[in-house]
């Protein structure tokens, strides 16, 4: 019994220590003087985590918008309120689905790749040799990836919303015959730029930071063996997903919970 409690305490200490390491890691790598060289490194990572994730995020956005419209229509039509379809699609996407689903896809597509890449660099001693050459790998390897993720995910989220709303339009207006004036009109009268679009973007920024942070930290902190890399990659996806969903609840409660 006492052994179990001691074990629990040890796990707690380890967790706290890991969180401390992660915090220090973030502070050391995110803060730095921007340079021309750094800009190009960032650009390259933007291409990797942003541009190459565009396809999967856009396609998912289109399908989710279409499904939302289809499901929403069958419910709303019972109340004779199918005019509210645009509002329903837009609000669910902007406030909730775009930030969360885009972040989950991002964790799977880009986050795991970042972990594996940095992990492999660690396993093949590239990070150590960079240190020995006198270049801080936190600045050179981690910082561009961190910043690229932080910028890319909100942009992907915007894309997800736009495509999703268009998908809803395709199904609702073109297929199910909702009047397109009321699709856009109802949407415009109910969506508030700051309250809905803005809060969705704030969520997305928070998720971007958390997912990228988890991904690069797991890559940097892993045990440099093939088993260690595969475990860390899995951990990146699991931890990011849990963090995104958990934080989403907290943020929703703060942003929309007290909405009068």
């Amino acid at each position: 019994m006492i052994r179990h409690i001691a074990g629990l305490g040890r796990r707690g200490c380890e967790l706290l220590e890991a969180m401390g390491r992660a915090g220090l890691f973030l502070a050391q790598s995110a803060v730095g003087v921007p340079s021309r060289e750094g800009f190009y490194l960032w650009l390259r990572q933007m291409h990797f985590v942003g541009v190459l994730s565009l396809a999967i995020v856009m396609v998912s956005g289109l399908f989710i918008g279409m499904v939302l419209a289809l499901q929403g229509y069958t419910i709303l039509v019972d109340f004779g309120a199918e005019q509210a379809l645009g509002q329903m699609v837009a609000l669910s996407l902007l406030r909730e689905l775009s930030p969360v689903v885009a972040a989950l896809l991002f964790a799977g597509r880009a986050g795991s790749a970042l972990t594996a890449e940095i992990g492999l660099m660690k396993a093949t001693e590239q990070l150590s040799s960079m240190e020995m050459i006198g270049v801080d790998p936190l600045r050179r390897v981690v910082a561009p990836r961190l910043w690229a993720g932080f910028v890319a995910l909100p942009l992907l989220t915007v894309g997800f919303s736009v495509v999703g709303i268009y998908g809803g339009y395709l199904v609702g207006v073109e297929w199910l015959g909702v009047f397109d004036g009321s699709y856009w009109g109802n949407m415009q009268s109910s969506v508030d730029f700051i309250g809905d679009v803005g809060n969705g973007m704030v969520k997305s920024l928070v998720f971007a930071l958390v997912v990228t942070w988890i991904a690069v930290f797991q890559g940097y902190d892993l045990i440099p063996t093939s088993e260690g890399i595969s475990r860390a990659t899995t951990r990146t996806v699991v931890y990011s997903s849990l963090a995104v969903l958990g934080l989403d609840f907290v943020l929703t409660a703060v942003m929309f919970g007290g909405l009068s």
Binding site: Y40, H47, G50, P154, L155, S161, V162, Q188, V197
Partner: peptide, 30 residues
């Protein structure tokens, strides 16, 4: 420095900003 890559990232960011404008004008009716 690959020009294609730079162009790709540039277009990506431009698309993001245009999307935000779309959300502002068309979706929230600003």
């Amino acid at each position: 420095r690959s020009k294609v890559m730079e162009l790709g990232v540039g277009l990506f960011m431009l698309a993001g900003i245009l999307g935000l404008v779309f959300l502002g004008l068309r979706v929230s009716g600003l």
